[in-house]
Design a protein around this nucleic acid. Structure first.
Lengths: 242, 242
DNA sequence: CTCCGGCATAAACATATGTGAGTGCGACTA
DNA sequence: TAGTCGCACTCACATATGTTTATGCCGGAG
């Protein structure tokens, strides 16, 4: 992988400038690359990983199972996302991470991360920033879950995923590939599969999206944003000194 | 304020050891202390603060208003919590922070935080950890909100608040002071005020809690944990090298 | 003291979303 | 080519939670 194709670097450079040294340090932090098949766990709840996983390709989800077997997905991840950077300091995984599709994953040892925090203060802040964006997304999801209708919540999620994918060069025009089942969407939004279906029908009927197979096309961005009460501030897409 | 009474230091030392230098650096980071009255904003959505606020005394909430005027609280804060440490790197506040009671607040300039990241790698990691715990709490709330019943969700929240307050020495036996209205609880859990009342009645009837005035007493911790499907892993209460 | 306002509580009713069961289609497999 | 499996989709029905409105209590303000 070259500097230009590392989606994490793309993601970070969208938020602030990185020096060549910093980019090299990031590249060199990758110990190995592995592939995880769809529906397999990448990290399990209770694990104490000695390394963090950076998603290079594919879709992944953080999830938690509750007593009656129901599942909640607390994060969806796209290329360029760290799946468990927090395990560097949190130590014990309080949730699992699952591959939604075949995933290509770069492995960064915690020892290397520690060295980065000793030697590269600005790069450290950028990694910290990365986890802060995760947190901002969590807050946004909480708001959407608690106070928006199911339809608005779905619209919101679609807006977010579109922008996040676009940021790492994975959107083609108004279309993104979204290889995720309606059951998985339900676990993400806290809805039943049946209701996810109803809500998608509605967004289609309203002429807001097309969603066939894995291809999701946004037909009316402005109206979709309005329905989902979406504003992108929380994604920190601004490039500035950090 | 002496080293011993700073609740942030209490909170961090619960998770890892701090050197005297680090504690001094934290103490010296406080530029001034201010008081915010109940129901006033501490930080507003859209602000670009040049400093972060550390809560020394009182209760505060992060919140967001959605279009129909409904409000979602995405975090509740107790003494020792940073209210907007993330604004150090996120720059623009994507939500507001509100004083639920009179709050005593220490102010830490971002310039000082930057100096800490340059000079104190381990302390930087501890501050990072602090924001990671916030994130872990957000994920837990997402799970509770999406997949637990209203009653279980409430029980979960009570368990969490009890432990967090206990960690900073603000529990007396099985009792905590919880000066928060049922409407505010509703905004936290994504419920209506009426339903919050129903759910509290139920927890009382079951003999799990007593809640009169601001005093909340846990009558049956084990059963409350079970009802709320609560496990404390996500709070990272373990003391270890980070 | 008395008035007022915020808050907890309650009951009747409304509805968004969940549940359970089933159909049909397309992709893989034997 | 038939069988199977996962998934999108539907319908009828169930229910958790929301909405509206009202009551009573307590504590602060005058």
């Amino acid at each position: 992988m070259t500097l230009m194709t590392n989606p994490l670097i793309l993601k970070l450079e969208r938020r602030d400038q990185l020096s060549d040294d910093e980019k090299r340090a990031l590249e060199n932090a990758i110990a190995r690359i592995r592939v995880v098949e769809a529906d397999e766990d990448i990290v399990r709840e209770g694990d104490r990983p000695a390394e963090s996983s950076l998603l290079l390709d594919g879709f992944a989800a953080r999830y938690k199972i509750v007593s009656n077997g129901r599942r909640q997905i607390s994060a969806l991840h796209v290329p360029g996302d760290f799946l468990d950077l927090h395990s560097f300091l949190l130590k014990t995984m309080d949730h699992g991470v699952l591959a939604l599709t075949t995933c290509r994953i770069a492995t960064v040892p915690h020892a290397t991360l520690e060295k980065i925090t000793d030697e590269f203060p600005h790069l450290t802040r950028m990694l910290w920033l990365n986890t802060l964006i995760d947190g901002a997304i969590h807050r946004e999801w909480l708001t959407a879950m608690g106070r928006l209708s199911a339809t608005a919540h779905m619209a919101h999620l679609i807006c977010e995923l579109y922008l996040r994918l676009k940021t790492v060069g994975r959107a083609e025009g108004d279309t993104i590939q979204l290889p995720i089942t309606q059951a998985e969407l339900g676990d993400t939004l806290g809805l039943s599969t049946v209701h996810v279906n109803r809500v998608l029908q509605e967004l289609r009927k309203e002429g807001l999206i097309r969603f066939q197979g894995d291809a999701l096309t946004i037909l009316d961005w402005e109206r979709l944003k309005k329905v989902g009460e979406f504003t992108s501030t929380y994604l920190s897409l601004q490039n500035e000194d950090r």
